[in-house]
């Protein structure tokens, strides 16, 4: 267990979230069972009031979760100084067996909470509160994910051992490593790039023709292929080093914290993309989500394309 001020702050805030989320969880169960908009009983009236409390709580948690997530990554970067062998957050994440799952579920939770809020936003703007039941059922699922996240986080922080030697990102993300990541890096770059740009093109086409659901599905594809190509190809141009494939090092100062921008663009783009699918499913106006998704995804594409281009212009060769 590391008694680092950063870690303690994260734990304190998360215990606060836990208390609030648990309150929200019990109210959600009640609403999911008893909610009936057409009733005019006292019970229904109380549930309506309580639903406001739950949405406030979720809003509160979500708004803090995003900066706290960035802070979490930042903390991992800091812990990496203390652990022998680790040079960036990836070493810390793989230092325990929980790290990878924790990171995945943290990201997943941000998407879920975000989608919850966008449904809730639609809900309270309509007089008949059409989505209330759905959104509280969704929250019951989100709560379970959130609890898993908290447990994993606790396990991870308590099992990090400062004296244990861990792997640095140079070995984790190398083509000789015997893991999924190694396989990904061994994929031919030209194939990968073709897929990446075709997917981007698909995004534009589906945006233009507003094909129902396809835009959202392409977004899921896009974020997957973006991260893979970032590790395999674009990352190496950020580092200007053909062997360095780490997706965490560019979050550090040496690369002007560019990683935070990259991941933020990617997140907003893909989140809006997914949101467009949800909006379509609910039969609501999705044009805003379409637009945001396209804007931020294009910014991402431009940003990562700039790195190799500038490198080529400067040096006249590809890596």
């Amino acid at each position: 267990m590391i008694l680092l001020p950063e870690v303690i702050s994260i734990l304190i805030l998360n215990s606060l979230f836990f208390i609030f989320a648990t309150i929200a969880f019990f109210i959600s169960i009640k609403i999911a069972i008893y909610w009936d908009f057409n009733k005019s009983t006292k019970e229904q009236y109380r549930l309506e009031k309580e639903s406001f409390l739950v949405s406030t709580i979720i809003k509160y948690i979500f708004i803090l979760k995003i900066p706290l997530f960035l802070f979490f990554i930042f903390t991992l970067d800091k812990i990496s100084d203390l652990i022998t062998g680790a040079m960036c957050a990836s070493g810390v994440i793989t230092a325990t067996s929980y790290g990878v799952y924790l990171l995945t579920i943290k990201l997943l939770n941000i998407y879920i909470f975000g989608l919850w809020l966008s449904i809730s936003y639609l809900d309270i703007r309509r007089e008949d509160l059409p989505y209330t039941k759905i959104k509280f059922e969704l929250f019951i699922v989100a709560y379970i994910f959130f609890i898993i996240e908290l447990i994993l986080m606790w396990l991870m922080f308590s099992s990090i051992d400062i004296d244990k030697i861990v792997s640095c990102c140079g070995t984790l993300f190398s083509s000789s490593s015997n893991s999924t990541i190694g396989d990904i890096i061994r994929i031919k770059q030209s194939t990968l790039l073709t897929i990446f740009y075709i997917t981007s093109l698909l995004l534009f086409i589906f945006y233009r023709y507003r094909v129902k659901y396809l835009f959202a599905i392409t977004n899921i594809l896009f974020i997957t292929i973006s991260i893979i190509s970032l590790i395999s190809f674009f990352g190496t141009y950020i580092y200007e080093l053909p062997t360095h494939h780490c997706p965490f090092c560019f979050l550090q100062k040496d690369y002007y914290y560019i990683g935070y921008l990259i991941y933020t663009l990617l997140f907003i783009g893909s989140f809006s993309g997914l949101n467009s699918g949800v909006m379509e499913a609910l039969g609501e106006d999705a044009s805003k989500s379409y637009r945001y998704s396209l804007i931020f995804n294009s910014l991402y594409i431009v940003l990562v394309t700039l790195y190799p281009t500038i490198y080529y212009i400067k040096n006249g060769v590809w890596l």
Binding site: S9, I10, F52, L53, L64, P67, F71
Partner: peptide, 20 residues
């Protein structure tokens, strides 16, 4: 950032239920 996380959110958190 640490000081911020330990002050502002805690205060706002404490007012949620009374405000509701």
């Amino acid at each position: 950032a640490i000081i911020f996380f330990l002050s502002v959110p805690i205060y706002i958190g404490a007012t949620i239920i009374p405000a509701w």
